[in-house]
Computed example of a mutant assay.
Amino acid sequence: MTQPSISYKRHRFPPEIIAHAVWLYVRFNLSLREVEEMMLERGIDVSCETVRRWTRKLGSLIARNLRRRQARPGDVWHLDDVVVKIAGRSFRLWRAVDQDGVVLDGECQIFCV
């Protein structure tokens, strides 16, 4: 099954600017106005509504392409965990990484001791 490629036809801005604005919004959990301000600091005058439209139209396709380019996890994994007591409640924090330091998973579990 072939994946649909991203079409930037009929857009005023180049594909690199669109992809960067969507990436900023999605990756760093910024508000649309913050993305607008960051782009303005770089000399690109784009409204927050335009960024919202780009994200709605192209966000899932850009995310799929980024996930596809992401490196596969290695075959050696390391698990680290710690128990922390906060306000009388115990929390187990753990993280799994591969041999290259890529975080595979991390979670916080609450349990009673």
Rank of each mutant, 00 (worst) to 15 (best):
M1K: 03
M1E: 15
T2V: 08
T2R: 02
P4R: 08
I6H: 04
I6C: 10
I6F: 04
Y8I: 10
Y8C: 11
K9Q: 15
R10T: 09
H11L: 14
H11Q: 15
H11P: 02
H11A: 01
F13E: 15
F13P: 05
F13K: 07
P15F: 01
P15A: 10
P15N: 03
E16C: 08
I18R: 03
A19M: 06
H20Y: 14
H20L: 15
H20A: 15
A21S: 15
W23N: 13
W23R: 15
W23Y: 15
L24V: 01
V26Y: 01
R27Y: 00
F28E: 15
F28A: 14
N29M: 11
S31N: 06
S31A: 09
E34R: 14
V35G: 01
V35W: 02
V35D: 00
E36C: 10
L40M: 14
L40C: 07
R42G: 13
G43W: 02
I44N: 13
D45C: 09
D45T: 14
V46M: 12
S47C: 08
C48Q: 14
E49N: 11
E49W: 07
T50L: 13
T50D: 07
V51Q: 00
V51G: 05
R53S: 13
W54E: 01
R56A: 12
R56F: 12
K57V: 12
L58A: 03
L58N: 01
L58E: 00
G59D: 00
S60C: 06
S60L: 03
L61I: 03
L61H: 01
I62A: 04
I62E: 03
I62T: 02
I62M: 13
I62K: 01
I62N: 01
A63I: 08
R64M: 10
N65C: 10
N65E: 15
R67H: 08
R67E: 10
R69W: 02
R69E: 09
R69I: 01
R69V: 01
Q70E: 14
R72W: 04
R72P: 08
G74E: 03
D75N: 13
D75W: 07
V76R: 12
W77R: 08
H78L: 06
H78A: 06
L79C: 08
L79S: 08
L79T: 02
L79D: 05
L79R: 11
D81C: 09
V83S: 09
V84R: 05
K85F: 00
K85V: 14
K85P: 00
I86Q: 06
A87E: 04
A87H: 12
A87T: 11
G88M: 03
G88S: 02
G88R: 05
G88T: 12
R89M: 07
R89H: 06
R89D: 06
R89Y: 00
S90K: 14
S90Q: 12
S90A: 13
F91N: 12
R92A: 08
L93R: 05
L93C: 13
R95A: 13
R95G: 08
A96E: 05
A96I: 05
A96K: 07
A96Q: 04
A96W: 04
V97I: 07
Q99S: 11
Q99R: 04
Q99C: 07
Q99A: 11
D100A: 13
D100W: 06
G101W: 02
L104Q: 12
D105S: 07
G106K: 03
E107A: 12
E107Y: 09
E107V: 09
C108N: 02
Q109N: 04
Q109H: 09
Q109L: 13
I110H: 03
F111P: 11
C112T: 06
V113Y: 00
